[in-house]
């Protein structure tokens, strides 16, 4: 239930507010961050299924082929859940590494398909879009997590899943 509410908030924020935070054409992608959170806290099944649903919702609005975001987010939900099983989720460094690497992995899948295997385009997209987006999103997500956790006086990403 709580995850559903968080998803609804994230979707609304992504569609309405996030574009106002754009810097040099780069805007945070809160939907990937939500999938990372889901996979990390709820395990591989919820992460994969949640990633698929979130990606599909995103695909409905996207100009690209239906299923591309669903594929990349399903994989990320699964991989994060598998890799993040026994780590300290409350550690800020671990959080940074997980969100940052997961964002990059997501974009590796996304751009590998969207550039149709053109290595030059792929590298350009990874360097000029994926990398700054991952950094920006990670910073925003960590800020939000810190704010919410300090207000609620509890951890959103706890060590015990």
């Amino acid at each position: 239930m709580r995850d559903g509410i968080v998803l609804a908030i994230v979707l609304i924020l992504q569609a309405t507010v996030v574009y106002r935070m754009e810097i040099a054409g780069i805007r945070p992608d809160l939907l990937v961050a939500f999938v990372v959170y889901l996979g990390w806290m709820r395990g591989p099944i919820a992460g994969t299924a949640g990633g698929f649903i979130v990606g599909l919702i995103q695909d409905l609005d996207a100009p690209g082929p239906l299923g591309l975001n669903a594929l990349s987010k399903s994989l990320i939900g699964f991989l994060v859940a598998k890799a993040g099983f026994r780590v300290h989720r409350s550690n800020i460094g671990v959080r940074f590494a997980f969100f940052f690497v997961a964002m990059l992995m997501h974009d590796v899948v996304y751009f590998a398909v969207s550039t149709s295997g053109d290595l030059g385009k792929f590298i350009v997209q990874m360097f000029f879009v994926a990398l700054p987006t991952a950094l920006y999103t990670t910073a925003i997500v960590l800020l939000i997590l810190t704010l919410v956790e300090s207000v609620s006086k509890g951890l959103l990403l706890t060590d015990e899943a």
Binding site: Q14, Y19, R27, I57, Q58, D61, A62, P63, G64, T133
Partner: peptide, 10 residues
């Protein structure tokens, strides 16, 4: 409302 995708197609 805006596209949820980063490219903004709709």
């Amino acid at each position: 409302g805006r596209s949820l995708d980063r490219l903004g197609g709709s």
